[in-house]
Amino acid sequence: MSVLLDVRGLKTTFPVGAGQIKAVNDVSFTLGRGEVLGLVGESGSGKSVTGFSIMGLLEPPGRITGGQILFDGTDLTKLGQEEMRRLRGRRIAMIFQDPMMTLNPVLRIDTQMIEAVTAHRPVSKAEARALARDALGQVGIPSPEERLNAYPHQFSGGMRQRVAIAIALLNKPDLIVADEPTTALDVTIQAQILAEVQKLTAEQGTALIWITHDLSVVSRLADRIAVMYAGRIVEYGDVAEVIGKPHHHYTAGLIGSVPSRNRRGSRLAQIPGMTPSLLTLPDGCAFRTRCARADGDCAVMPELTGQGAHWHRCVHPNTQVLA
């Protein structure tokens, strides 16, 4: 499978007062065409900032301070604003977390879909509208022709997220960054949308970065998993490997906190403590204030080590096999 996205040593920082928040700190991963990467981690671990860095949509004063984002061979960190704009929505699309907030409340659905097409392609409004209608049909919105004339408030949350997904799919992008797109939805709708996205991206050969704090979601969807903690990737590998044999104790903790069929009845393990502030991280492994295996060795930042396609950042890797 050819490499579509190759993120190398990405660093994104937000200057605050005298200090710097290193929201994304030396993050690397690759993604092949049509592949699905699950980006997992607690809230505040830097998942969204990673996504926005790829999209070129960082909010000032945040900026990329190091590394490369090679998309189909082009380094996105070097592109100008206009070049980046032409890529956004056409070759890389994004779906956001809260469907209630992502559609403009005062513009009709057709306006918001047609503009997404005509921003990139020299097609007539009628053609763009036809594309929009087909896309709505694809994501399972009934009577798409009429719904095009509706406003966002006339849709439920799940339907709005479908519209957002339809918009993301409109220009048949190579990559979609989906930032917790089902977190705000009911469990049943969540499952439907998950299945829908899986099907459509597979059909179109679209690669997917699925951001979530929910391991159980990714384990069904992703080919590869990257686990983030405090701005760094602490574990990375094939889904079966990472879920089956987590090396990092944070990953093991996340898996332990997911309800699963195999361990029904036993108590869910909680990761003790709280996510530390990015401004007051401990030296070395950022997880060591919460890790049961932590010792003096952990005070030095562990390197990413591993074999084959399974990497981790831990000096005393977990050897227990889970699940």
Partner: peptide
């Protein structure tokens, strides 16, 4: 607002984002 960010994510020109959205 998120919808402004989403408009940008669609690759709209800044002009359209400001004067329409």
């Amino acid at each position: 607002q998120e919808y402004v960010k989403f408009a940008r994510a669609k690759g709209l020109t800044e002009r359209r984002v400001i004067f329409v959205h």
